[in-house]
Design a protein around this nucleic acid. Sequence first.
DNA 1: TGTACATCAGTGAACGCGCGTTCACTGATGTAC
DNA 2: TGTACATCAGTGAACGCGCGTTCACTGATGTAC
Lengths: 215, 215
Amino acid sequence: MTHANLRPKQRQTYRHGDLRRALLEAGVALARAGGPEAVVLREATRRAGVVPNAAYRHFASHAELLQAVRAAALAAMAAEMEGELARFRPEAMSQAEFAKASLRAIGSAYLNFAEREPGLFRTAFASFDPDVPEGDPSMAGASGLNPFQLLGVALDRLVEAGVLPKERRADAEFLAWSTVHGFALLVLDGPLRPLGPGHRQAIAARLLEMVEKGL
Amino acid sequence: MTHANLRPKQRQTYRHGDLRRALLEAGVALARAGGPEAVVLREATRRAGVVPNAAYRHFASHAELLQAVRAAALAAMAAEMEGELARFRPEAMSQAEFAKASLRAIGSAYLNFAEREPGLFRTAFASFDPDVPEGDPSMAGASGLNPFQLLGVALDRLVEAGVLPKERRADAEFLAWSTVHGFALLVLDGPLRPLGPGHRQAIAARLLEMVEKGL
DNA sequence: TGTACATCAGTGAACGCGCGTTCACTGATGTAC
DNA sequence: TGTACATCAGTGAACGCGCGTTCACTGATGTAC
Protein backbone atom coordinates (compact mmCIF):
# COMPACT_ATOMS: atom_id res chain seq x y z
CA MET A 1 0.00 0.00 0.00
CA THR A 2 1.59 3.26 -1.08
CA HIS A 3 -1.05 5.50 0.42
CA ALA A 4 -3.68 5.33 3.12
CA ASN A 5 -6.98 3.65 2.34
CA LEU A 6 -9.44 6.39 1.51
CA ARG A 7 -12.47 4.38 2.61
CA PRO A 8 -13.28 5.72 6.07
CA LYS A 9 -15.54 4.33 8.77
CA GLN A 10 -14.80 0.73 7.87
CA ARG A 11 -13.00 -1.38 10.34
CA GLN A 12 -10.36 -3.27 8.40
CA THR A 13 -9.22 -5.89 10.83
CA TYR A 14 -10.45 -7.54 13.94
CA ARG A 15 -9.28 -11.01 14.65
CA HIS A 16 -10.22 -12.35 11.30
CA GLY A 17 -10.31 -9.25 9.20
CA ASP A 18 -12.79 -10.04 6.49
CA LEU A 19 -14.89 -12.90 7.65
CA ARG A 20 -17.79 -12.25 5.35
CA ARG A 21 -15.60 -12.62 2.30
CA ALA A 22 -13.88 -15.67 3.78
CA LEU A 23 -17.23 -17.37 4.44
CA LEU A 24 -18.49 -16.56 0.99
CA GLU A 25 -15.35 -17.94 -0.59
CA ALA A 26 -15.58 -21.09 1.50
CA GLY A 27 -19.22 -21.41 0.50
CA VAL A 28 -18.34 -21.08 -3.17
CA ALA A 29 -15.64 -23.72 -2.78
CA LEU A 30 -18.17 -26.04 -1.17
CA ALA A 31 -20.70 -25.43 -3.92
CA ARG A 32 -18.04 -25.99 -6.56
CA ALA A 33 -17.19 -29.36 -5.08
CA GLY A 34 -20.63 -30.62 -4.13
CA GLY A 35 -23.45 -28.44 -5.37
CA PRO A 36 -25.97 -26.56 -3.26
CA GLU A 37 -26.47 -29.27 -0.62
CA ALA A 38 -22.77 -29.06 0.17
CA VAL A 39 -23.02 -25.42 1.19
CA VAL A 40 -23.06 -26.05 4.90
CA LEU A 41 -22.74 -23.11 7.24
CA ARG A 42 -20.75 -24.94 9.86
CA GLU A 43 -18.28 -26.22 7.29
CA ALA A 44 -17.80 -22.73 5.90
CA THR A 45 -16.93 -21.43 9.36
CA ARG A 46 -14.57 -24.36 9.89
CA ARG A 47 -12.74 -23.43 6.72
CA ALA A 48 -12.58 -19.83 7.74
CA GLY A 49 -11.04 -20.93 11.04
CA VAL A 50 -13.82 -19.54 13.12
CA VAL A 51 -16.49 -20.77 15.51
CA PRO A 52 -19.86 -21.69 13.89
CA ASN A 53 -22.00 -18.91 15.26
CA ALA A 54 -19.53 -16.28 14.12
CA ALA A 55 -21.20 -16.57 10.73
CA TYR A 56 -24.26 -14.86 12.15
CA ARG A 57 -22.40 -11.57 12.32
CA HIS A 58 -22.39 -11.54 8.52
CA PHE A 59 -25.32 -13.66 7.36
CA ALA A 60 -28.71 -13.74 9.00
CA SER A 61 -29.13 -17.42 8.26
CA HIS A 62 -27.85 -20.34 6.29
CA ALA A 63 -30.29 -19.41 3.51
CA GLU A 64 -28.72 -15.99 3.19
CA LEU A 65 -25.25 -17.46 2.82
CA LEU A 66 -26.52 -19.88 0.19
CA GLN A 67 -28.14 -17.04 -1.67
CA ALA A 68 -24.86 -15.14 -1.73
CA VAL A 69 -23.11 -18.22 -3.09
CA ARG A 70 -25.77 -18.57 -5.79
CA ALA A 71 -25.24 -15.00 -6.84
CA ALA A 72 -21.51 -15.63 -7.11
CA ALA A 73 -22.17 -18.71 -9.25
CA LEU A 74 -24.37 -16.71 -11.61
CA ALA A 75 -21.73 -14.02 -11.81
CA ALA A 76 -19.14 -16.64 -12.74
CA MET A 77 -21.38 -17.88 -15.51
CA ALA A 78 -21.89 -14.36 -16.77
CA ALA A 79 -18.13 -13.94 -16.86
CA GLU A 80 -17.83 -17.14 -18.91
CA MET A 81 -20.32 -15.72 -21.41
CA GLU A 82 -18.53 -12.41 -21.60
CA GLY A 83 -15.29 -14.22 -22.26
CA GLU A 84 -16.84 -16.20 -25.08
CA LEU A 85 -18.40 -13.07 -26.56
CA ALA A 86 -15.09 -11.21 -26.47
CA ARG A 87 -13.48 -13.75 -28.77
CA PHE A 88 -14.68 -12.24 -32.02
CA ARG A 89 -14.66 -8.74 -33.45
CA PRO A 90 -17.95 -7.30 -34.68
CA GLU A 91 -16.22 -5.09 -37.29
CA ALA A 92 -14.75 -8.15 -39.00
CA MET A 93 -18.14 -9.63 -39.87
CA SER A 94 -21.58 -8.71 -41.08
CA GLN A 95 -24.21 -7.62 -38.59
CA ALA A 96 -26.13 -10.84 -39.13
CA GLU A 97 -23.05 -12.99 -38.66
CA PHE A 98 -22.18 -11.15 -35.50
CA ALA A 99 -25.67 -11.58 -34.10
CA LYS A 100 -25.77 -15.30 -34.82
CA ALA A 101 -22.29 -15.77 -33.43
CA SER A 102 -23.34 -13.95 -30.27
CA LEU A 103 -26.24 -16.29 -29.66
CA ARG A 104 -24.08 -19.33 -30.27
CA ALA A 105 -21.45 -17.96 -27.92
CA ILE A 106 -24.01 -17.56 -25.16
CA GLY A 107 -25.24 -21.09 -25.64
CA SER A 108 -21.87 -22.72 -25.70
CA ALA A 109 -20.66 -20.68 -22.74
CA TYR A 110 -23.66 -22.00 -20.86
CA LEU A 111 -22.86 -25.58 -21.71
CA ASN A 112 -19.15 -25.17 -21.10
CA PHE A 113 -19.80 -23.69 -17.72
CA ALA A 114 -22.13 -26.53 -16.80
CA GLU A 115 -19.52 -29.04 -17.80
CA ARG A 116 -16.52 -27.36 -16.25
CA GLU A 117 -18.24 -26.25 -13.04
CA PRO A 118 -21.09 -28.65 -12.42
CA GLY A 119 -21.32 -27.81 -8.74
CA LEU A 120 -21.59 -24.09 -9.34
CA PHE A 121 -23.99 -24.65 -12.20
CA ARG A 122 -26.30 -26.70 -10.02
CA THR A 123 -26.06 -24.16 -7.27
CA ALA A 124 -26.94 -21.33 -9.59
CA PHE A 125 -30.17 -22.92 -10.69
CA ALA A 126 -31.26 -25.27 -7.95
CA SER A 127 -33.93 -23.85 -5.69
CA PHE A 128 -33.99 -20.56 -7.53
CA ASP A 129 -35.28 -17.74 -5.36
CA PRO A 130 -37.83 -15.57 -7.16
CA ASP A 131 -37.69 -12.90 -4.45
CA VAL A 132 -34.25 -11.82 -5.49
CA PRO A 133 -34.24 -8.53 -7.36
CA GLU A 134 -33.71 -8.97 -11.08
CA GLY A 135 -31.04 -6.35 -11.44
CA ASP A 136 -28.94 -7.50 -8.50
CA PRO A 137 -25.34 -6.75 -9.55
CA SER A 138 -23.94 -9.48 -7.30
CA MET A 139 -24.96 -12.06 -9.90
CA ALA A 140 -23.67 -10.14 -12.91
CA GLY A 141 -20.42 -10.22 -14.84
CA ALA A 142 -18.07 -7.39 -15.67
CA SER A 143 -20.62 -5.92 -18.06
CA GLY A 144 -23.09 -5.56 -15.22
CA LEU A 145 -25.43 -8.00 -16.90
CA ASN A 146 -26.47 -11.39 -15.57
CA PRO A 147 -26.65 -14.48 -17.81
CA PHE A 148 -30.29 -13.99 -18.64
CA GLN A 149 -29.71 -10.39 -19.64
CA LEU A 150 -26.73 -11.34 -21.77
CA LEU A 151 -28.95 -13.79 -23.64
CA GLY A 152 -31.46 -10.99 -24.16
CA VAL A 153 -28.80 -8.78 -25.67
CA ALA A 154 -27.82 -11.50 -28.15
CA LEU A 155 -31.44 -11.91 -29.19
CA ASP A 156 -31.84 -8.18 -29.62
CA ARG A 157 -28.88 -8.22 -31.97
CA LEU A 158 -30.60 -10.90 -34.05
CA VAL A 159 -33.64 -8.67 -34.41
CA GLU A 160 -31.56 -5.59 -35.26
CA ALA A 161 -29.72 -7.58 -37.90
CA GLY A 162 -33.01 -8.68 -39.39
CA VAL A 163 -32.31 -12.35 -38.73
CA LEU A 164 -35.10 -12.77 -36.20
CA PRO A 165 -38.50 -11.24 -37.04
CA LYS A 166 -39.59 -8.71 -34.44
CA GLU A 167 -42.80 -10.58 -33.69
CA ARG A 168 -40.84 -13.65 -32.67
CA ARG A 169 -38.57 -11.77 -30.31
CA ALA A 170 -40.92 -11.87 -27.34
CA ASP A 171 -40.20 -14.79 -25.03
CA ALA A 172 -37.46 -16.00 -27.34
CA GLU A 173 -35.07 -16.19 -24.37
CA PHE A 174 -37.31 -18.75 -22.79
CA LEU A 175 -37.14 -21.01 -25.81
CA ALA A 176 -33.40 -20.71 -26.19
CA TRP A 177 -32.72 -21.03 -22.53
CA SER A 178 -34.96 -24.06 -22.06
CA THR A 179 -33.18 -25.99 -24.74
CA VAL A 180 -29.72 -25.43 -23.51
CA HIS A 181 -30.65 -25.72 -19.85
CA GLY A 182 -32.36 -29.06 -20.35
CA PHE A 183 -29.41 -30.46 -22.21
CA ALA A 184 -27.00 -29.30 -19.54
CA LEU A 185 -29.05 -30.97 -16.85
CA LEU A 186 -29.58 -34.23 -18.69
CA VAL A 187 -25.87 -34.48 -19.23
CA LEU A 188 -25.01 -33.39 -15.71
CA ASP A 189 -27.04 -35.84 -13.70
CA GLY A 190 -29.62 -37.24 -16.05
CA PRO A 191 -29.78 -40.08 -18.49
CA LEU A 192 -27.30 -38.42 -20.84
CA ARG A 193 -24.48 -38.62 -18.35
CA PRO A 194 -22.87 -41.68 -19.94
CA LEU A 195 -22.29 -39.76 -23.19
CA GLY A 196 -18.67 -39.32 -24.13
CA PRO A 197 -17.26 -35.81 -24.64
CA GLY A 198 -17.18 -36.11 -28.42
CA HIS A 199 -20.73 -37.29 -28.68
CA ARG A 200 -21.79 -34.58 -26.27
CA GLN A 201 -20.09 -31.89 -28.35
CA ALA A 202 -21.79 -33.11 -31.48
CA ILE A 203 -25.23 -33.04 -29.91
CA ALA A 204 -24.58 -29.63 -28.40
CA ALA A 205 -23.77 -28.28 -31.86
CA ARG A 206 -26.96 -29.71 -33.32
CA LEU A 207 -28.89 -28.28 -30.41
CA LEU A 208 -27.63 -24.75 -31.02
CA GLU A 209 -28.36 -25.19 -34.69
CA MET A 210 -31.89 -26.27 -33.87
CA VAL A 211 -32.46 -23.18 -31.77
CA GLU A 212 -31.12 -20.88 -34.46
CA LYS A 213 -33.31 -22.51 -37.07
CA GLY A 214 -36.42 -22.96 -34.99
CA LEU A 215 -36.55 -19.73 -33.07
CA MET B 1 -61.53 -64.14 -4.69
CA THR B 2 -63.44 -66.99 -6.33
CA HIS B 3 -60.58 -69.44 -6.34
CA ALA B 4 -57.40 -70.03 -4.44
CA ASN B 5 -54.37 -67.97 -5.32
CA LEU B 6 -52.22 -70.10 -7.60
CA ARG B 7 -48.97 -68.42 -6.53
CA PRO B 8 -47.46 -70.80 -4.03
CA LYS B 9 -44.73 -70.27 -1.47
CA GLN B 10 -45.58 -66.66 -0.85
CA ARG B 11 -46.75 -65.65 2.55
CA GLN B 12 -49.68 -63.32 2.10
CA THR B 13 -50.18 -61.80 5.51
CA TYR B 14 -48.25 -61.30 8.66
CA ARG B 15 -49.10 -58.46 10.95
CA HIS B 16 -49.03 -55.84 8.30
CA GLY B 17 -49.67 -57.91 5.26
CA ASP B 18 -47.95 -56.02 2.52
CA LEU B 19 -45.49 -53.67 4.05
CA ARG B 20 -43.32 -53.31 1.00
CA ARG B 21 -46.21 -51.94 -1.00
CA ALA B 22 -47.32 -49.75 1.90
CA LEU B 23 -43.84 -48.25 2.22
CA LEU B 24 -43.58 -47.67 -1.49
CA GLU B 25 -46.95 -45.96 -1.56
CA ALA B 26 -46.01 -43.81 1.40
CA GLY B 27 -42.77 -42.96 -0.35
CA VAL B 28 -44.60 -41.96 -3.50
CA ALA B 29 -46.96 -39.78 -1.46
CA LEU B 30 -43.98 -38.09 0.15
CA ALA B 31 -42.31 -37.52 -3.21
CA ARG B 32 -45.53 -36.18 -4.65
CA ALA B 33 -45.77 -33.64 -1.87
CA GLY B 34 -42.16 -32.64 -1.48
CA GLY B 35 -39.89 -34.05 -4.12
CA PRO B 36 -37.00 -36.44 -3.61
CA GLU B 37 -35.67 -34.88 -0.41
CA ALA B 38 -39.02 -35.56 1.21
CA VAL B 39 -38.71 -39.29 0.72
CA VAL B 40 -37.64 -40.05 4.26
CA LEU B 41 -37.48 -43.66 5.34
CA ARG B 42 -38.63 -43.01 8.89
CA GLU B 43 -41.60 -41.00 7.72
CA ALA B 44 -42.62 -43.77 5.34
CA THR B 45 -42.60 -46.29 8.19
CA ARG B 46 -44.58 -43.88 10.35
CA ARG B 47 -47.24 -43.67 7.67
CA ALA B 48 -47.30 -47.42 7.31
CA GLY B 49 -47.86 -47.67 11.06
CA VAL B 50 -44.70 -49.56 11.64
CA VAL B 51 -41.46 -49.17 13.53
CA PRO B 52 -38.57 -47.54 11.54
CA ASN B 53 -36.30 -50.51 11.16
CA ALA B 54 -39.12 -52.69 9.84
CA ALA B 55 -38.39 -51.09 6.50
CA TYR B 56 -35.15 -53.02 6.31
CA ARG B 57 -37.06 -56.24 5.75
CA HIS B 58 -38.08 -54.87 2.35
CA PHE B 59 -35.48 -52.33 1.32
CA ALA B 60 -31.78 -52.70 1.91
CA SER B 61 -31.38 -48.99 2.50
CA HIS B 62 -32.97 -45.61 2.14
CA ALA B 63 -31.41 -45.34 -1.32
CA GLU B 64 -33.18 -48.47 -2.45
CA LEU B 65 -36.54 -47.15 -1.32
CA LEU B 66 -35.90 -43.89 -3.12
CA GLN B 67 -34.97 -45.76 -6.25
CA ALA B 68 -38.27 -47.66 -6.13
CA VAL B 69 -40.14 -44.39 -5.75
CA ARG B 70 -38.27 -42.95 -8.72
CA ALA B 71 -39.26 -45.91 -10.84
CA ALA B 72 -42.88 -45.42 -9.85
CA ALA B 73 -42.66 -41.75 -10.81
CA LEU B 74 -41.28 -42.62 -14.23
CA ALA B 75 -44.02 -45.20 -14.69
CA ALA B 76 -46.62 -42.56 -13.85
CA MET B 77 -45.14 -40.27 -16.48
CA ALA B 78 -45.16 -43.07 -19.03
CA ALA B 79 -48.84 -43.61 -18.24
CA GLU B 80 -49.52 -39.91 -18.82
CA MET B 81 -47.86 -40.16 -22.22
CA GLU B 82 -49.80 -43.26 -23.14
CA GLY B 83 -53.02 -41.53 -22.19
CA GLU B 84 -52.18 -38.56 -24.38
CA LEU B 85 -51.24 -40.83 -27.28
CA ALA B 86 -54.50 -42.78 -26.99
CA ARG B 87 -56.53 -39.65 -27.65
CA PHE B 88 -56.32 -39.83 -31.44
CA ARG B 89 -56.90 -42.56 -33.97
CA PRO B 90 -54.15 -43.23 -36.50
CA GLU B 91 -56.63 -44.40 -39.16
CA ALA B 92 -58.35 -41.01 -39.16
CA MET B 93 -55.24 -39.14 -40.31
CA SER B 94 -52.30 -39.36 -42.66
CA GLN B 95 -49.18 -41.14 -41.53
CA ALA B 96 -47.31 -37.86 -41.36
CA GLU B 97 -50.02 -36.18 -39.31
CA PHE B 98 -50.09 -39.10 -36.95
CA ALA B 99 -46.36 -39.06 -36.49
CA LYS B 100 -46.25 -35.33 -35.79
CA ALA B 101 -49.20 -35.58 -33.45
CA SER B 102 -47.44 -38.36 -31.57
CA LEU B 103 -44.37 -36.29 -30.96
CA ARG B 104 -46.43 -33.34 -29.81
CA ALA B 105 -48.41 -35.63 -27.50
CA ILE B 106 -45.22 -36.88 -25.88
CA GLY B 107 -43.99 -33.35 -25.36
CA SER B 108 -47.17 -32.01 -23.89
CA ALA B 109 -47.64 -35.05 -21.68
CA TYR B 110 -44.17 -34.36 -20.34
CA LEU B 111 -44.98 -30.75 -19.58
CA ASN B 112 -48.41 -31.54 -18.18
CA PHE B 113 -46.96 -34.14 -15.88
CA ALA B 114 -44.31 -31.73 -14.66
CA GLU B 115 -46.95 -29.12 -13.92
CA ARG B 116 -49.51 -31.41 -12.34
CA GLU B 117 -47.07 -33.55 -10.37
CA PRO B 118 -44.03 -31.40 -9.70
CA GLY B 119 -42.88 -33.52 -6.78
CA LEU B 120 -42.97 -36.75 -8.77
CA PHE B 121 -41.39 -35.06 -11.75
CA ARG B 122 -38.49 -33.82 -9.66
CA THR B 123 -38.11 -37.20 -8.08
CA ALA B 124 -38.03 -38.94 -11.43
CA PHE B 125 -35.12 -36.88 -12.69
CA ALA B 126 -33.23 -35.66 -9.68
CA SER B 127 -30.13 -37.66 -8.91
CA PHE B 128 -30.69 -40.03 -11.75
CA ASP B 129 -29.03 -43.37 -11.20
CA PRO B 130 -27.14 -44.60 -14.27
CA ASP B 131 -26.70 -48.08 -12.80
CA VAL B 132 -30.36 -48.88 -13.20
CA PRO B 133 -31.03 -51.26 -16.10
CA GLU B 134 -32.51 -49.52 -19.10
CA GLY B 135 -35.32 -51.98 -19.66
CA ASP B 136 -36.49 -52.09 -16.06
CA PRO B 137 -40.28 -52.60 -16.29
CA SER B 138 -40.89 -50.94 -12.92
CA MET B 139 -40.47 -47.55 -14.58
CA ALA B 140 -42.61 -48.29 -17.60
CA GLY B 141 -46.25 -47.68 -18.39
CA ALA B 142 -48.91 -50.13 -19.55
CA SER B 143 -47.18 -50.48 -22.91
CA GLY B 144 -44.08 -51.73 -21.19
CA LEU B 145 -42.13 -48.73 -22.42
CA ASN B 146 -40.59 -46.02 -20.28
CA PRO B 147 -40.86 -42.32 -21.18
CA PHE B 148 -37.61 -42.26 -23.07
CA GLN B 149 -38.62 -45.28 -25.13
CA LEU B 150 -42.01 -43.77 -25.89
CA LEU B 151 -40.26 -40.70 -27.24
CA GLY B 152 -38.13 -42.97 -29.40
CA VAL B 153 -41.23 -44.60 -30.86
CA ALA B 154 -42.68 -41.23 -31.79
CA LEU B 155 -39.46 -40.25 -33.53
CA ASP B 156 -39.38 -43.55 -35.40
CA ARG B 157 -42.85 -42.79 -36.70
CA LEU B 158 -41.62 -39.46 -38.01
CA VAL B 159 -38.92 -41.24 -39.97
CA GLU B 160 -41.31 -43.89 -41.31
CA ALA B 161 -43.70 -41.17 -42.41
CA GLY B 162 -40.86 -39.42 -44.24
CA VAL B 163 -41.17 -36.29 -42.10
CA LEU B 164 -37.78 -36.69 -40.46
CA PRO B 165 -34.82 -37.61 -42.70
CA LYS B 166 -33.19 -40.85 -41.60
CA GLU B 167 -29.81 -39.24 -41.13
CA ARG B 168 -31.25 -36.86 -38.55
CA ARG B 169 -32.91 -39.60 -36.53
CA ALA B 170 -29.85 -40.49 -34.47
CA ASP B 171 -29.75 -38.66 -31.15
CA ALA B 172 -32.97 -36.84 -32.02
CA GLU B 173 -34.44 -37.88 -28.66
CA PHE B 174 -31.72 -35.95 -26.91
CA LEU B 175 -32.59 -32.76 -28.74
CA ALA B 176 -36.31 -33.09 -28.17
CA TRP B 177 -35.96 -34.17 -24.61
CA SER B 178 -33.52 -31.42 -23.70
CA THR B 179 -35.86 -28.74 -24.90
CA VAL B 180 -38.89 -29.87 -23.07
CA HIS B 181 -36.99 -30.90 -19.96
CA GLY B 182 -35.31 -27.55 -19.64
CA PHE B 183 -38.54 -25.70 -19.98
CA ALA B 184 -40.23 -27.89 -17.38
CA LEU B 185 -37.44 -27.22 -14.92
CA LEU B 186 -37.23 -23.50 -15.52
CA VAL B 187 -40.94 -23.26 -14.90
CA LEU B 188 -40.89 -25.59 -11.93
CA ASP B 189 -38.27 -23.94 -9.79
CA GLY B 190 -36.35 -21.68 -12.07
CA PRO B 191 -36.68 -18.12 -13.24
CA LEU B 192 -39.79 -18.91 -15.27
CA ARG B 193 -41.81 -19.80 -12.22
CA PRO B 194 -43.62 -16.44 -12.09
CA LEU B 195 -45.14 -17.08 -15.52
CA GLY B 196 -48.93 -17.30 -15.56
CA PRO B 197 -50.58 -20.48 -16.90
CA GLY B 198 -51.69 -18.82 -20.13
CA HIS B 199 -48.27 -17.44 -20.87
CA ARG B 200 -46.75 -20.78 -20.02
CA GLN B 201 -49.08 -22.63 -22.40
CA ALA B 202 -48.23 -20.24 -25.21
CA ILE B 203 -44.53 -20.69 -24.76
CA ALA B 204 -44.92 -24.45 -24.50
CA ALA B 205 -46.69 -24.48 -27.85
CA ARG B 206 -43.93 -22.45 -29.47
CA LEU B 207 -41.40 -24.77 -27.94
CA LEU B 208 -42.94 -27.87 -29.46
CA GLU B 209 -43.20 -26.06 -32.74
CA MET B 210 -39.54 -25.18 -32.58
CA VAL B 211 -38.58 -28.79 -32.00
CA GLU B 212 -40.70 -30.00 -34.88
CA LYS B 213 -39.21 -27.41 -37.17
CA GLY B 214 -35.64 -27.59 -35.99
CA LEU B 215 -35.18 -31.30 -35.52
C1' DT C 1 -55.70 -84.99 13.11
C1' DG C 2 -52.58 -83.21 16.46
C1' DT C 3 -48.23 -81.54 18.01
C1' DA C 4 -43.31 -79.80 17.70
C1' DC C 5 -40.67 -76.89 15.31
C1' DA C 6 -38.43 -73.59 12.13
C1' DT C 7 -39.20 -69.32 9.82
C1' DC C 8 -39.00 -64.56 9.52
C1' DA C 9 -41.99 -60.00 9.68
C1' DG C 10 -42.20 -56.69 12.78
C1' DT C 11 -40.62 -54.87 17.84
C1' DG C 12 -38.02 -52.10 21.24
C1' DA C 13 -34.23 -49.66 22.40
C1' DA C 14 -30.38 -47.44 21.31
C1' DC C 15 -26.20 -45.38 18.44
C1' DG C 16 -23.72 -41.58 16.54
C1' DC C 17 -23.99 -37.95 13.43
C1' DG C 18 -23.96 -33.22 11.89
C1' DC C 19 -26.87 -29.78 11.34
C1' DG C 20 -28.79 -24.70 12.19
C1' DT C 21 -29.40 -21.72 15.79
C1' DT C 22 -29.49 -19.25 20.60
C1' DC C 23 -27.33 -17.37 24.70
C1' DA C 24 -24.40 -14.81 27.63
C1' DC C 25 -19.61 -13.63 27.34
C1' DT C 26 -14.82 -11.29 26.32
C1' DG C 27 -11.51 -8.50 24.87
C1' DA C 28 -9.11 -5.85 20.97
C1' DT C 29 -10.13 -1.81 18.64
C1' DG C 30 -11.55 3.06 17.44
C1' DT C 31 -13.18 7.34 19.45
C1' DA C 32 -14.39 11.20 22.63
C1' DC C 33 -12.93 13.96 26.07
C1' DT D 1 -0.98 13.36 24.65
C1' DG D 2 -3.28 10.31 27.78
C1' DT D 3 -7.19 8.00 29.67
C1' DA D 4 -12.08 6.22 29.99
C1' DC D 5 -15.36 4.28 27.46
C1' DA D 6 -18.50 2.30 23.97
C1' DT D 7 -18.55 -0.82 20.16
C1' DC D 8 -19.08 -5.15 18.19
C1' DA D 9 -16.41 -9.27 15.89
C1' DG D 10 -15.57 -13.48 17.40
C1' DT D 11 -15.85 -17.10 21.66
C1' DG D 12 -17.58 -21.03 24.37
C1' DA D 13 -21.06 -23.92 25.54
C1' DA D 14 -25.17 -25.76 24.75
C1' DC D 15 -30.04 -26.86 22.53
C1' DG D 16 -33.17 -29.82 20.11
C1' DC D 17 -33.83 -32.03 15.91
C1' DG D 18 -34.53 -35.91 12.83
C1' DC D 19 -32.08 -38.73 10.35
C1' DG D 20 -30.27 -43.68 8.75
C1' DT D 21 -28.90 -47.74 10.71
C1' DT D 22 -27.65 -51.78 14.06
C1' DC D 23 -28.75 -55.11 17.63
C1' DA D 24 -30.92 -58.71 20.09
C1' DC D 25 -35.66 -59.93 20.65
C1' DT D 26 -40.66 -62.00 20.13
C1' DG D 27 -44.40 -64.24 18.69
C1' DA D 28 -47.83 -65.39 14.89
C1' DT D 29 -47.67 -68.23 11.03
C1' DG D 30 -46.83 -72.27 7.78
C1' DT D 31 -44.92 -76.89 7.58
C1' DA D 32 -43.19 -81.61 8.71
C1' DC D 33 -43.88 -85.51 11.11
